[in-house]
């Protein structure tokens, strides 16, 4: 009851050393950028602001709402943090939250913390902020619609990355882990989306000044739209590809040198292996869900464009 661990917090032991270290490297480089950017942007107020905001995200993760059958919806907060604080500060805040969850509660491991930060803090913030910036200046409804979509997709992205890392570590079968993780998180993501939308809606209504829409230069803003868009697109493209054609992704991984280069976790591919359960129907549901999500996202943007053009 105190707080809800999600299937995205990987414990130690489930990722191998190479995958863990690669994730750490990506995370450290990104955080290095984040630190230098926030130093410039926020000034001396940043320390107490980001510190209390980290506690806010931590506490907000405990706010749940009953869904059905004893399950409840709640929020990870990566997209929300990036939307209200900006992407870099949002990333640092999420990093602190994930670090405390791992250190204090062992919710997520230490060696794999780089991966957990990457999945739940960095990618979620990039998607959340990038997609949000893409509809800046549009009507409130379009903005909230896009925020909901971004929040949902950010969770899906985290789930996809987690699945890929588990697979690269030889812990899970790609054909199983991707549909399973993406299926579960397609639902979890709806809770994330609803809370994020209503939270931002509440802030828009009471303190719109805090959302600081004009605070960033047009160029930086455009870059974020690209980053968010590209990451979102990757999620949408990789998941069906990985689910439908795992061997293809396997080949990519081999070509890129992830697999078969003397990893400590020898992973053998069984070419003619077929998934005994979660068969084609589950897969197609996921794929259909992802395609549906693209359509929804595209409609939101197009409707927004149209409305803007009219006014």
């Amino acid at each position: 009851m105190l707080y809800a661990p999600t299937p995205l917090h990987i414990p130690d032991g489930f990722l191998n050393l190479i995958v863990s270290l690669i994730c750490w490297a990506i995370t450290i480089v990104t955080l290095g950028f984040a630190i230098s950017k926030t130093n410039k942007a926020l000034g001396e107020k940043q320390i107490p602001l980001m510190g209390v905001m980290a506690a806010f995200i931590f506490a907000a993760q405990m706010i749940n709402f009953p869904v059905a059958g004893g399950t409840s919806g709640h929020m990870l907060g990566g997209a929300l943090a990036a939307i209200v604080l900006g992407p870099w500060a949002g990333m640092l805040v999420m990093t602190a939250v994930i670090a405390v969850q791992a250190l204090l509660f062992q919710d997520g491991g230490l060696l794999v913390m780089g991966a957990n930060i990457l999945n739940m803090g960095l990618v979620t913030a990039a998607i959340g902020y990038g997609l949000y910036r893409s509809v800046i200046g549009q009507s409130k409804g379009v903005k909230l619609g896009m925020i909901g979509f971004a929040a949902w997709l950010s969770v899906m992205a985290g789930a996809l990355l987690t699945s890929l890392q588990l697979w690269l570590s030889g812990t899970s079968q790609l054909e199983i882990v991707i549909p399973a993780m993406m299926g579960v998180h397609a639902l979890i993501g709806i809770g994330e989306a609803l809370i994020t939308v209503f939270a931002v809606g509440f802030i828009m209504q009471t303190r719109p000044d805090l959302l600081g829409e004009g605070s960033e230069s047009a160029k930086a803003s455009r870059n974020w739209v690209y980053v968010g868009g590209i990451v979102a697109l990757l999620v949408v493209l990789i998941s069906p590809f990985a689910s439908g054609d795992p061997d293809g992704l396997e080949r990519v991984a081999i070509d890129m040198g992830f697999i078969g280069t003397g990893l400590d976790a020898p992973y053998e591919i069984i070419p003619d292996y077929t998934v005994p359960f979660l068969g084609e129907t589950a897969l197609s549901t996921i794929v259909a869900g992802v395609i549906g999500a693209i359509v929804v996202g595209a409609i939101i943007v197009l409707v927004g464009r149209g409305m803007k053009a009219k006014s």
């Binding site: 709640h74 929020m75 209503f198 939270a199 509440f202 802030i203």
Partner: peptide, 11 residues
Amino acid sequence: VAGNMAGQLFL
């Protein structure tokens, strides 16, 4: 209700 709580907590 939950989202508004989160918004309130944020403020």
